[in-house]
Amino acid sequence: MAFKTGRRPADDDLLNLVFRRRKSPFVRLFTKTPPGVVCPHFYELILSNGCPYDCVYCYLRLTFRGNKHPVLFTNSWEEVHRELDACGDGVFSTGELADSLAVVPPLLAPAVEYFRARPGKYLLLTTKSCNTAFFRGLEPTPQVIVSFSVNAPEVAERLERLAPPPLARLKAAAKLMEWGWRVRVRLDPVVWDGDLSSYRSVCREIRALGAERVTVGTLRQYPGLFRFAPGAPRKGLHKASDGRMRYSLTVRLGVYERVAEWLGVQPALCKETEEVWQALGWTFCGCNCTV
């Protein structure tokens, strides 16, 4: 993968993309959540793999054993259509194995039109990009949800290399909202180093945006990631009961309470434990990957 040098890459700066047919199914039910972790099932809709951004904590480094360059699938839409028709209603996320919009998959345009006509099915796009060009001229539909992942600017500068700055992502989110699209925000992963003050400003920007839902998550990763991402942050992480490396219960509770204060709303939580929900006294009422 090569980029133009001297600046962060724009969406059209990507070179040497891999285009190929997919031999495995395009649709599968996400059921990987360990017991005790609150994460409703949803469908994965796999239109592409990988991501051009260089976030040092990214779980895709472990998923793809270090090779997370974008792969775009070129099968006929009819193949995907048949699989989708065989599934029940629900949320279909293209963001589990790829950034949904950093490089637009060839199959995304027909996917939007498919979901537009099916009231019980929802297409979820999750991205760190600022790619609003795909939506220009498209009629918005409530069946498509665009979720922008952001972080504190200081954390993003250090750990989310090559991705657009968080405030630029939020500006892109605001543009899509102006155009009538459903927009959500993920503040994830919050990286705790003993001081949360760097998150105050981005929380205020998120609050001002007024997205339909905000989901927050703290840094969590499986130990195997460190084999492929030796620079991934480890400070304060300990092996949790679900097999992930997490911050202590006390730290996570403090993070969520403070972030909720800055956001002015109770956010949803991403892949958190029942213990955390109970300790906070919060009631689950949906998250990033639910309707």
Rank of each mutant, 00 (worst) to 15 (best):
D193G: 14
G194Y: 04
L219N: 07
K235S: 14
R258W: 01
S201F: 13
S198R: 09
C270M: 07
Y247T: 08
L225N: 05
V190I: 15
L269A: 07
G281V: 04
D193P: 00
R227Y: 08
T250Q: 07
R200V: 11
V251P: 02
R258N: 02
V255G: 03
E272I: 01
T283L: 09
V216R: 01
L209G: 09
V251R: 01
T218P: 00
G224Y: 06
S248Q: 04
V265Y: 00
V276Q: 07
E275M: 02
S201H: 08
V255K: 03
C270N: 10
Q266K: 12
G236Q: 08
E272S: 00
M245Y: 08
G231N: 13
V255S: 11
G264F: 13
F226S: 07
A240F: 14
R258D: 05
R258L: 14
G286K: 06
R213Q: 10
T250Y: 03
D195Q: 01
L209W: 14
V259W: 07
V276W: 11
L196Y: 08
V202G: 06
C270I: 10
V251D: 03
S248Y: 12
D195G: 01
V255M: 05
V255A: 09
L249F: 10
E275A: 08
V190G: 06
Y247Q: 08
W282A: 02
S201N: 08
K271L: 13
S201R: 11
R234Q: 14
R234D: 06
E212Q: 09
K271I: 08
W262G: 12
R244V: 02
V255C: 04
K239W: 00
E274T: 08
Y247A: 06
R258C: 00
G210E: 14
P230N: 01
G217E: 06
Y247E: 07
D242T: 10
S248V: 08
Q266E: 13
Y222M: 08
R244S: 15
V251G: 03
V214K: 07
G236I: 15
A268E: 06
I206G: 04
E274I: 10
F284H: 12
L219I: 09
A229M: 04
L196N: 10
S201M: 09
L219S: 03
W192L: 05
P267K: 12
E205Q: 11
S241T: 15
G236W: 13
S248L: 03
C285G: 01
V255Y: 01
V202C: 04
D193R: 15
A268N: 05
A232E: 07
Q278S: 12
P223R: 04
R213L: 15
R252L: 05
V216H: 03
V265E: 15
A240V: 04
K239L: 15
T283F: 03
P267F: 10
G194W: 04
G264T: 09
A240Q: 13
T283R: 14
L209I: 13
L263I: 06
T218W: 04
R213H: 11
G281C: 05
Y199A: 01
R258Y: 01
A211C: 14
F226C: 00
V190D: 13
R246N: 09
G281K: 01
L225A: 02
L219D: 13
S241L: 13
V191F: 12
